[in-house]
Amino acid sequence: MNKQTVAYDSKVEGEVIVTRADAVINWIRKNSVWPMPMGLACCAIELMAAGGSRFDISRFGMEVMRFSPRQADCMIVAGTVTYKMAEVVRRIYEQMGDPKWVVAMGACASSGGMYRSYATLQGVDRVVPVDVYVSGCPPRPEALLDAMIKLQEKIKDENSVKNLLTKHPINKIRKDAVS
């Protein structure tokens, strides 16, 4: 008699999880990233390869490529952004609903890369805030997958509730060179 029960049989524990709102929201967001391929140049081909059968981006829960910004929450800027294209990239970014993230795929999108010329924007971070930069010209599909996993880790640690109450910090673009 008076045996202490150590088994798991509490009804309360079975149906309630005590956690932080941030953790839940981030968990949901992290595993349902819908990327929008902003395919501009060569990197877009590697982006397609990442979606193809060999690399298969869907293993990480991010395969729902949406071509409409209104349905997507992660913009993958794949390719050289020229000044003529920059305003378009910004407009498309603004059409995405909050919260939203940006991955700069490849050297051109990150920093202008090998195109140091009159027509090329020296890094897409001058028009949109970038969360993850991927190096390479073009990056291998594995590098893109790695970047997406990094993005998931970043989403996991965000202050989502605080950001819900305040304005989402979307204006973190780099202004050192253009102000």
Partner: peptide
Amino acid sequence: AEDVVEQTNLKVSAAP
């Protein structure tokens, strides 16, 4: 593009 310039302060600047 005025609206984009207003938000981002973007202009064509000489490439480094």
